[in-house]
């Protein structure tokens, strides 16, 4: 490690995304580029059309499922813990604990190490290996839930809340809004772990990614498509759908449904009401405030760049504990849907 080299001289934001000059590649670029390193399969990180894409095998599989097989992209799978050299930079991928295949990109150049965390969380998730803190010189952290008001409760407790509601209203359909990639499969595994072994019904938009998870060894139990049901009344059933389908005409087939929504935003009541949730489930695939602040301590980086969300509060906190922190403004990142 050296302190003479300015990290901004070899990794910096450009309009197309975060660019690594000595390797001539971008990390999670916002547009199609020549060479890309992709942390995970969510839409604001993985885009189609790159000439070559390096990612974990699971992330590449997710991208193929979403982008019609990507025949024009040279795909370079890199397993967790393996290392490759790109130009004058060595690149490895380390679990981020966010969704299946999600990784932190660890970049080393002239003895200096920068970790691009991508999206991450620190609590157990049956659908992916846990986040591994990597000591580094610069840590680039996400900040989706970077306010001290976000302390996600235990996901086991939230699953129990859903099952308690099903027991209280056994004649009503529980319609749970989940994002198709990650949240959907995590909610299913949480319900299974809580002992719920009945059939879980799926909106068609969730089918292909559920199958992909199962192909990757994540058991989801008995699931079926709502559109395949013939005699089903859905009374007392749990039905998962994308949030957009909840207010859609599609949802009218259910008698007197209870709209539930699984998202980290549900922790704030006004947000939950805005989404029309009558049963908000605070289940997040992103780190909450304590996980974010703990991670800064765990990686021990003297410099932290904050991006992807509410930079202001986390920068203020990091500076208060003596870290040289600043906001890193990347284009193409609105408040993301997969939270």
């Amino acid at each position: 490690m050296t302190d003479t080299l300015n990290p901004r001289s070899w990794l910096y934001p450009t309009p197309r995304g975060l660019y690594c000059e000595p390797g001539d590649f971008y990390v999670d670029p916002a547009v199609a580029v020549g060479r890309a390193v992709i942390t995970h399969g969510h839409g604001d990180h993985a885009r189609p059309g790159h000439r070559s894409a390096l990612a974990t095998p699971e992330t590449l599989a997710i991208m193929r499922a979403r982008f019609q097989d990507m025949p024009d992209t040279a795909q370079q799978p890199l397993k967790y813990g393996e290392e490759v050299k790109i130009g004058d930079v060595s690149v490895s991928l380390v679990p981020a604990g966010h969704i299946l295949g999600s990784a932190q990109a660890v970049l080393e150049h002239k003895g200096q190490r920068i970790v691009v965390s991508g999206d991450y969380k620190r609590r157990p998730d049956a659908t992916c290996p846990p986040f591994e803190p990597v000591p580094c010189d610069v840590f680039i952290t996400e900040a989706t839930f970077a306010l001290p008001v976000f302390h996600h409760p235990s996901d086991v407790g939230e699953a129990a809340k859903l099952l308690r509601s099903v027991a209280t209203f056994p004649e009503r359909t529980h319609l749970v809004g989940v994002y198709a990639l990650g949240k959907c499969q995590r909610v299913i595994t949480l319900l299974r772990a809580a002992g719920y072994d009945k059939r879980i019904w799926l909106h068609g938009a969730l089918a292909s990614l559920c199958k992909l998870y199962e192909d990757n060894g994540i058991a989801l139990g008995d699931t079926a498509l709502v559109s395949d049901a013939i005699l089903e009344t859905f009374r007392g059933a749990i039905v998962l759908c994308p949030p957009s389908a909840m207010a859609d005409r599609w949802s009218r087939r259910f008698a007197d449904p209870i709209p539930a929504m699984a998202s980290g935003w549900m922790g704030v009541r006004a947000r939950a009401r805005q989404r029309g949730a009558e049963l908000p489930l605070i289940i997040s695939d992103h780190a909450d405030w304590s996980e974010l602040t703990q991670t800064l301590k765990d990686v021990g980086a003297p410099k932290v760049w904050v991006t992807h969300g509410r930079e202001e509060a986390l920068v203020a906190y990091a500076r208060s504990i003596g870290i040289d922190a600043e906001a890193l403004h990347l284009g193409g990142r609105e408040e993301e849907d997969e939270s």
Partner: peptide, 20 residues
Amino acid sequence: ELFGLSYDYVGDLAETLALI
């Protein structure tokens, strides 16, 4: 500072305190 940012976001004093 952090309390100010939090309260601005949540908009309800009792809820802000309960969350932080």
